[in-house]
């Protein structure tokens, strides 16, 4: 599934202050591609992810995914679009505390037309022994793996990952990135990952650098590394 951004701008208005979080961005993410959006705090990468994924609407410009213009969609259509095509992973894991690992994954599976089995996905993320545990019984890395499993189980065409390793140490972060890489390769799922850590770019097909809401550089990575091989800055 490919994503196309044409002259996209997002402006926030706070009182009399106008903030251009994303400015005139033109970009294309190809089907099955692993893309890293890289930039420092305030560079607009989270805003970019939100509007690409339909969590927010751009102020101007056009966003289309496989020809479908999502920037014109209303909330109901966007929900349907997310349901059928997208998966999300956040830094904060966003798990439901009253549900077990398996049940949290089931929450994602329930909305999909062609889901994977919960067992299969849990095996992929290495959580089979933890199936009946609750989030509070898991480490941060394990919780993030549950979050990945919940996103993957619905068999999304694109995965959006917002600083998925931001709260983890190096070892756990690499584990998570390995899983994402494996899923990208196994299921040919497009992955859009945002991070402020330049090292992570080493495992991407392309690195899109952002600053002050603008795309400042696009690097095509011809020497993709495995997540475990990344040297953590």
């Amino acid at each position: 599934m490919s994503i196309k951004l044409e002259n996209v701008t997002k402006t926030y208005f706070t009182g009399e202050v106008e903030t251009h979080a994303v400015k005139n961005v033109d970009l294309e993410i190809k089907n099955g591609e692993f893309v890293v959006l890289l930039g420092p705090s305030g560079s607009g990468k989270s805003t970019m992810l939100n509007i690409i994924s339909g969590l927010d609407n751009p102020t101007s410009g056009k966003i289309s995914i496989d020809g479908e213009i999502i920037s014109d969609m209303n909330a109901k259509q966007l929900t349907k679009f997310r349901r059928d095509n997208l998966g999300f992973i956040f830094q904060q894991y966003n798990l439901l505390q009253t549900l077990s690992v398996k049940e949290n994954v089931e929450v994602g599976r329930e909305v999909s037309k062609l889901p994977f089995t919960v067992e299969e996905v849990l095996e992929q993320v290495g959580l089979t022994p933890q199936t009946t545990k609750y989030p509070f019984q898991l480490s941060g890395g394990e919780q993030q793996r549950v979050s990945i499993a919940r996103a993957v189980v619905k068999n999304p065409k694109i995965m959006f990952c917002d600083e998925p390793t931001g709260a983890l140490d190096e070892e756990m972060a690499k584990e998570i990135l390995s899983i994402l890489q494996k899923l990208n390769e196994t299921y040919k799922t497009s992955v859009v990952l945002i991070t402020h850590n330049p090292s992570i770019g080493a495992m991407a097909d392309r690195i899109i650098k952002l600053n002050s809401g603008e795309v400042v550089e696009i690097i095509v990575n011809k020497t993709k590394l495995n997540a475990s091989e990344i040297s953590w800055g």
Binding site: T79, F88, N94, G108, V111
Partner: peptide, 15 residues
């Protein structure tokens, strides 16, 4: 929070 999370995952209003 739960309502928002379900919306992000793709649950519709009815669900």
């Amino acid at each position: 929070y739960n309502i928002s999370l379900f919306k992000v995952i793709g649950y519709n209003n009815k669900e």
